[in-house]
């Protein structure tokens, strides 16, 4: 059906991202194809856990097993938007959530008044007019965490040593998209980091992996000093621009803080599960 309709059709799961965009005429299509047939179960295996794409964010965030083994993932799902949206929005939908920009996530009339940007109907980026590319920001909370956990098709894999944490910065306690965030998954042997992934949200057009910080931490004792240095390394590649809430200078400064907080949570956590 999708192949037949081409670009005039889109898939919809919970609809919490797509429908507002359709109302603002950011997409102009004739048909939405419901994904209600998607499986919506959480399968808990001995050292992995599969979350079907159709599982709602609310269910994923409240699942006891996900919380016990993949704390960061449960937290990330539970920090998306607000309670009624988490009841409708799905894990699959949040992974695929469109990039955001406050020059783009506006009504048709507003975008027309501002001059259309390259993401829809126009040919320049209003945030960075000299740039050849779009600077809209990846604003998924669960995608960075999924990448940090090295997810294979929504299959969360854990070893007993696996710990994870997600820290989200936003203006209000609810509703808002992230303006900076850190997803960290790490394996620890005692307090030595054996492997680690750090993925940043809302500082680039895609979930940004902080590879230098990851490499630095490998084999290190996860103490205050290591965390400080890793956070500084992690923040360096972040390039927030003036297209989300609060100033980008401050957001840039805050990247280091959220990474630090996430790493401290990892270091404070016990092992992911006792199995």
């Amino acid at each position: 059906m999708a192949a037949e309709l081409g670009s005039r059709a889109m898939f919809v799961a919970g609809g919490t991202d797509l429908f507002p965009k359709l109302k603002r005429r950011q997409f102009e299509i004739d048909t939405v194809i419901g994904l209600d047939f998607l499986p919506r179960e959480i399968h808990n295996g001995s050292n992995e856990c599969t979350v079907d794409a159709g599982v709602t964010l609310a269910d994923a965030s409240r699942d006891a097993h996900v919380n016990a083994r993949f704390k960061g993932y449960a937290d990330a799902a539970g920090l998306v938007s607000s309670p009624p949206l988490r009841n409708a929005g799905t894990i699959g939908g949040n992974l695929c959530v469109d990039t955001r920009c406050n020059y783009y996530d506006m009504t048709y009339e507003w975008r027309k008044a501002a001059g259309f940007c390259m993401k829809k109907d126009g040919d320049i980026c209003l945030v960075a007019p000299s740039s050849p590319r779009c600077w809209a920001v990846s604003s998924s909370d669960t995608a960075p965490m999924a990448i940090a956990l090295d997810v294979m098709s929504l299959r969360l894999r854990a070893t007993p040593e696996m710990r994870s944490a997600y820290v989200k910065l936003r203006r209000r306690g609810s509703i808002d998209f992230p303006i900076a965030g850190a997803a960290v998954a790490a394996q620890l042997d005692g307090d030595i980091v054996t492997s680690c992934r750090i993925v940043l949200s809302a500082v680039a057009s895609y979930p940004l992996q902080a590879t230098a910080a990851e490499a630095f931490l490998k084999g290190k004792r996860l103490d205050g000093e290591a965390i400080d240095q890793a956070a500084e390394l992690a923040a360096r590649p972040a390039k927030p621009l003036d297209n989300a809430d609060l100033t980008h200078f401050w957001r840039k400064r805050m990247v280091r803080v959220v990474v630090e907080q996430a790493l401290h949570r990892i270091s404070d956590q016990g092992a992911g599960f006792d199995g």
Partner: peptide
């Protein structure tokens, strides 16, 4: 020349948690 955030998402109004 434009209102920067004419929406309830971007105009920040305190929630229960704030």
């Amino acid at each position: 020349g434009l209102h920067k955030w004419p929406s309830m998402l971007e105009y920040k109004s305190p929630t229960f948690l704030d």
